[in-house]
């Protein structure tokens, strides 16, 4: 349904703020996964890195409700084949929280000085770049304070899980991430344990 390989661009910013942005996908259903890393090139040449915090697909027009199109004989992908207009009246959008920005060679784990401009492109982050940006999980503290559509713990767990896969099960990084989580939640054991379990059951 959605070929995630190839093109870097996944969508375009339709709402923006200092703490993050909302983007509409170029292709229906082609959402970047929860917790994955995306980037935007800002107006002044800086690169803003953000973690995907939420995704949804619905009607482009909020006044038009989505109704059932299928039946026992017509389901899933065949519905889209039979109703070609759906790709034009539905859209997928996702939110992302800014965690860092790069200006020149300098990478800062801070919110960007300026929000990324509206209508700028949101891109996937290549493997080596993702590995570099997330090498030191100090920015986990920003995500731990996330307030949005999903609980911050779910976001952290999804992000850590995504990175562990991106980093090809790098145990050294996993330990650094676990230590960072333990530091953030040192006074909140009840939140820490499920997070470590989500990351790797052996860690808890």
């Amino acid at each position: 349904m959605c070929d995630q390989s190839g093109a870097e661009r996944v969508g375009e910013i339709i709402e923006t703020s200092t703490v993050g942005f909302v983007a509409e996908c170029d292709e229906l259903h082609c959402l970047p996964p929860l917790g994955s890393l995306v980037r935007v090139r800002g107006a002044e040449g800086e690169v803003i890195y953000a973690v995907v915090t939420y995704g949804e697909t619905g009607s482009i027009d909020p006044g038009r409700r989505v109704v059932r199109r299928g039946s026992a004989d017509l389901r899933d992908q065949a519905i889209y084949q039979r109703n070609p207009e759906l790709r034009h009246v539905l859209r997928s959008v996702f939110s992302a929280a800014a965690i860092a920005y790069r200006r020149g060679d300098r990478l800062s784990y801070l919110l960007p000085p300026l929000p990324p401009p509206l209508h700028f492109s949101v891109e996937r982050v290549s493997l080596p770049e993702a590995q570099e940006v997330t090498d030191q999980p100090r920015y986990f503290a920003i995500l731990a304070q996330y307030r949005g559509e999903i609980p911050a713990d779910q976001l952290l767990a999804a992000h850590a899980r995504y990175l562990y896969d991106v980093r090809q099960s790098d145990r050294d990084w996993l330990e650094r991430a676990a230590r960072e989580l333990a530091r953030i939640f040192k006074h909140d054991y009840d939140r820490l344990v499920p997070l470590l379990e989500a990351l790797d059951p052996d860690l808890a």
Binding site: R82, P84, E85, H88
Partner: peptide, 14 residues
């Protein structure tokens, strides 16, 4: 303006 094509392959331009 809408152009809808049905059959194989289906398509839409709107």
């Amino acid at each position: 303006g809408v152009v809808l094509s049905y059959g194989e392959p289906s398509g839409a331009r709107m």
